[in-house]
Design a protein around this nucleic acid. Sequence first.
DNA 1: ATCTGATTGTAACCAACATCACTTTACTGT
DNA 2: ACAGTAAAGTGATGTTGGTTACAATCAGAT
Lengths: 210, 210
Amino acid sequence: MDESANLAFQFEPALSKEIEEFGELRSFKDGDIIMDYGKYIRMMPLVVKGTLKVLKKDDNGNEILLYYLSSNETCSMAYSCCLEEKKSEVKAIAEGDLTIVAIPHNKLDEWLCKYPSWKNYIMRSFNERFSEMLKSIESIAFHKLDDRLIAYLKEKKRLSGSSVIKASHYQIADELATSRVVISRLLKILENNGKILLYRNEIKLLHDFD
Amino acid sequence: MDESANLAFQFEPALSKEIEEFGELRSFKDGDIIMDYGKYIRMMPLVVKGTLKVLKKDDNGNEILLYYLSSNETCSMAYSCCLEEKKSEVKAIAEGDLTIVAIPHNKLDEWLCKYPSWKNYIMRSFNERFSEMLKSIESIAFHKLDDRLIAYLKEKKRLSGSSVIKASHYQIADELATSRVVISRLLKILENNGKILLYRNEIKLLHDFD
DNA sequence: ATCTGATTGTAACCAACATCACTTTACTGT
DNA sequence: ACAGTAAAGTGATGTTGGTTACAATCAGAT
């Protein structure tokens, strides 16, 4: 289990060994669903490589982006769900190629007391997720759509490492919980201001994209 | 430490004893600040009696309500902050009379492995807070202000156990991150529809308040 | 009793965004 | 090359909620 080596660095050797032994390395392709609404979760995913997108849907079927998980991060929601054998309240989708280590649920609790580095990792994850959710709330409650769109594009750039973002206006609208028409309009304004270039299923961020 | 007896029921006896020994019972009055932005948190509050209001403020000074904590609940944010000696990202205010048990931060980690009931309590708390935050995001992102106002009034009723809500329009506006004028308008509509009665600093929910 | 400040009511106006309707463009498979 | 489909552009129009401004009302202090 070579690829998980980058995960290992932050864990004590004995734990790394256990992760190698009990964790299952799994690969996914763009759009594959790792967690889904109402489904039970029996393993906790640690992201080794790639990006995992976490979404929340309401009763009317509207979906909104909660946060992205990248290398070495994990989904705290999954953790709680695993422990209590609860159904998932969120959906997690692979964004591009994705590799995770699936930790079986019975190990989670065991390791918590056995390995301080695991406990710290879990606690830090909880904390990071809270922060992300707070940012999310702040963004939705206080910022206008154009700001949120810019923040969204920046985040995409950061995660992909590329200033070319591959997504349709429709997908973006979905993740920001608005309509395609609105996104098209705002993107067009950004293009007119010389911030981006628009292509089909592709947005190129220009140099002075702040 | 008599009043914490209601907390005790869910913990194993040995832990209850430790809570009695190391926890400090504290009382607050309406409006007292238990946690504040940027301040370090050196103890974790368990709510014994009353209600604790948890808020988040953005850079521009806008504040929004995250959730309420009532009896036997605790603030997971505080937990993470305590562990890592981090500054608080949220503010917690007493809503009416409030009694808490303050758990010193050095015990948190110790008990986690020592007492399974403590670990379960903490994990359940994390989970509940995540759910609350998800609800909050859902509410802000997908529901219109009138729905959110109704939900807010219902929650107030649930927490206080009374269908008379004591709050000014201004306070409500603050917690829903909008302006006083807007809240006054919506409340007046509810009154005209026979759902509520308005008084100064007081709102009476009528029977068919759905 | 009167003054003062906080609270509430209300009208008018505006910006942001949603929604609808339709056109144009770009890609895909045959 | 052409049809079919998905994506994107764009105008018109309605709704929600934010803002400003001002009047009316109430409660507590002097």
